[in-house]
Amino acid sequence: MEAFYEWFRILYEDTGINLPFMYDEYDRGRILNGLWATIKLSAICVLFSVIIGMVGAWLQGSPWKTTRRIVNVYIQLFRNTPPLVQLYFFYFAVGILIPRVENDWGGTSPLIDSFGWAVISLSFFAGAFNVEIFRSGIEAVPKSTIEAAKALGFSRLQIYKDITLPLALRVVIPSLNNNLVNLVKTTTLAYAIAVPELLYESNQIWSDNVNVTEMMLFLLVAYFVLVGILVWAMNFWDRSLKIPGFGQ
């Protein structure tokens, strides 16, 4: 392993291509932290935004007009305003209203830290798109299938959970995939509120080492790989959901 790391130092000395996070332990720690934060942020936001999508689509089918309206307003507001401003709004404007709690060092810190606000803000942002995606999937479930469940005495929630949603899920995965890829890319916004994610840590490294070009290319490759993993996982999920004899 050491030899492998050394190789990058030699690469730097010979060619000037400087990837300090490969040979320098401190920088390696930074990049791994950043990578881990990005992965964590992406995974949590994917999870929450999908839940928001499922719940929102359920509320959109509510018999109450007010409920449906609120969901529609939510969707339109989050779709048609910049996610960065949404993030600032949550972090600064809502953030000051949140009580502070005592921390380990005897001082106080906000109940929700910048990572937490990034999760909330980005989940709601991507969730707004997910609601529409799920709704379009639900529309593809035939009414007669739902009637069969009704006739068996299923409640509205049971029908949604056991019949509508599982069937809708199978047709929306490609659209969902697109949106979640966007979400992973959008996690870079967390940089703006100093969440130490991949972009933030890379920025630290290029400030110290003046190796912007290398770090930029590294970032492009890193996000390409992260997105690739997500797409691969979604395809895997899609295939595992295939029902024999079902679909086109």
Binding site: V181, T186, T188, Y191, L199, T213, M216, L220, Y223, V227
Partner: peptide, 15 residues
């Protein structure tokens, strides 16, 4: 298409 917008923005700013 797969790169984050913000990264591309930095890309242009610095390079």
């Amino acid at each position: 298409r797969n790169a984050p917008w913000l990264v591309l923005l930095f890309f242009a700013m610095f390079l």
